[in-house]
Design a protein around this nucleic acid. Structure first.
Length: 309
DNA sequence: AATTTTCACAACCGCTCGCGT
DNA sequence: CACGCGAGCGGTTGTGAAAAT
């Protein structure tokens, strides 16, 4: 996504509200093509966007002569054709950063992607679901909460290892990581709802589902005399109508959190404490700096409360 | 060698918000 | 204020490839 404003303001907003009806641009009739894109389609789309610029996605297919819906065109461009997209495997440094940001932000993939140049939200989401969540589990860490698995009755919802059966959640056996299928009851899915800051840790709870915010974040913010509401308000500013914290403030705030300099002492402290630490175990020494980021000086907070439950 | 299962990721879907009318 | 459009987000699904049986 290349709209940082949108990235920062359009944080997770899945909700329980009634639908506005079917998406209008994606009629399944009218010969709209679906499925994988061909090189020819890619070329047409890329050429058109190069000439005309991004935007007006709904009109684009007709104007470009593509038999795709606008949404599909936009997704293809954003996730695959954009020149700024970085190809190749996720590096250890990127993985480290994803982990840190996920611990801070939860499943807000576009926000996370916004801090990792060249990577898309979709790519990061996929990488998380297929690699990182399993990696954390194998190290005894709950990928939802970034806490030790033994603390929770653990289940993963939202893992993409659900191929071919959308009505099944996969439970990881925390000892051997085998998957077992459990039927979803009507009460199982947890729709995304905007959490009240005071009830965030409740929303994080044991039923699984999308995790909007994590209470270790709140602890660490509280630990810094920074109210959880700062983060919450920043993340949900669009829905709260809050203008007290600008995007640039939140951006700076995030930058400060991925600073390595002050992160290290906490890592060492955690090791001394004999606790496992997500980043410790996984990062392999990757740094934000390796990614070419200029991060701020405040990162001491990053890891402070992880094991203080 | 054939079939089944698992994995990885591209693409889709349903939903929401901002904005213009 | 209500409505529709354009756009973006996160969860889910589809599918080809690889691995296992």
């Amino acid at each position: 996504m290349n709209s940082s404003v949108m990235q920062n303001s359009r944080v997770a907003r899945r909700g329980t509200a009634a639908s506005k009806g079917p998406t209008q641009c994606c009629n399944k009739d009218e010969g709209i093509k679906r499925g994988p894109w061909t090189p020819e389609e890619d070329e047409v789309l890329a050429e058109f966007v190069r000439k005309e610029g991004e935007g007006r996605w709904r009109m684009l297919p007709r104007r470009a002569g593509l038999r795709r819906c606008g949404k599909s065109c936009r997704l293809r461009w954003m996730n695959y054709l954009r020149p700024s997209i970085r190809r190749g495997p996720i590096s250890l440094a990127e993985e480290d950063l994803i982990l840190r940001l996920h611990r801070l932000l939860g499943n807000r993939w576009s926000l996370i992607a916004g801090r990792i140049p060249g990577r898309t939200d979709n790519e990061i989401k996929n990488y998380w679901n297929t690699h990182l969540s399993k990696k954390l589990i194998s190290q005894g860490i709950d990928p939802r909460t970034h806490k030790p698995l033994s603390d929770n009755n653990y289940s993963i919802i939202g893992s993409s290892n659900n191929k071919g059966n959308s009505n099944v959640n996969r439970h990881y056996d925390e000892n051997n990581y085998k998957l077992e299928s459990i039927p979803i009851t009507s009460a199982t899915p947890v729709p995304y709802t905007k959490p009240n800051p005071s009830t965030i840790s409740v929303l994080l709870g044991e039923t699984g589902g999308a995790v909007p915010m994590q209470d270790d974040h709140s602890n660490f913010l509280n630990g810094m005399n920074m109210n959880l509401e700062l983060e919450t308000r920043s993340a949900w500013r669009s829905t709260e109508g809050l203008d007290g914290f600008g995007d640039e403030v939140f951006s700076t705030f995030l930058d400060s959190l991925i600073s390595e300099d002050s992160f290290l002492p906490q890592q060492q402290q955690n090791q001394l404490d004999g606790h496992s630490n997500t980043v410790d175990n996984i990062s392999g020494g990757g740094t934000s700096r390796e990614l070419g980021f200029d991060v701020g000086p405040l990162g001491a907070l990053w890891d402070a409360p992880l094991n203080q439950q």
